[in-house]
């Protein structure tokens, strides 16, 4: 089943913060409405990723403080608590667990970072 809000027509872009608010090759948390979104910047590949800030393992608002990196080229973040790692492209857990996270598109324009929700 295709849910409607996933179609590009209804995706709305929200201002997160200026590029300078995010550490190079690291993550930070932004608040959009009532939602906590983790935003990651891979300066190595000049890519940006966003996902839910909550780690589904222990339901902690923490993923933005996780170490980032890649597994065979797949960008990922590791939860600071128990090192559960998630793909920043698909949201899938990479340790073989059933957890998954929501990921969101990121756009950078004129020094400003936007998240598509």
């Amino acid at each position: 089943m295709v849910t409607e809000f996933e179609t590009p027509e209804t995706l709305s872009w929200h201002i997160a913060a200026p590029v300078s608010a995010f550490p190079a090759d690291g993550g930070a948390c932004v608040k959009i409405g009532e939602r906590q979104i983790a935003v990651f910047n891979f300066s190595h590949t000049n890519e940006w990723y966003a996902c839910q800030n909550m780690c589904p393992h222990k339901m902690q608002m923490i993923l933005s403080r996780g170490l980032t990196g890649d597994q065979n080229g797949e960008p990922k973040v590791a939860c600071p608590y128990h090192k559960k790692t998630f793909s920043l492209c698909t949201g899938e857990n990479l340790n073989g667990d059933d957890y998954r996270i929501e990921t969101y598109p990121v756009r950078v324009e004129a020094g400003m970072v936007y998240i598509g929700l």
Binding site: F42, G69, K83
Partner: peptide, 19 residues
């Protein structure tokens, strides 16, 4: 870390090699 990765490593690193 960026210098070390550029000299001796590959990819973006991970939660094992960074610390």
């Amino acid at each position: 870390y960026a210098e070390v990765l550029a000299q001796y490593g590959k990819g973006c690193g991970c939660e094992v090699c960074k610390p």
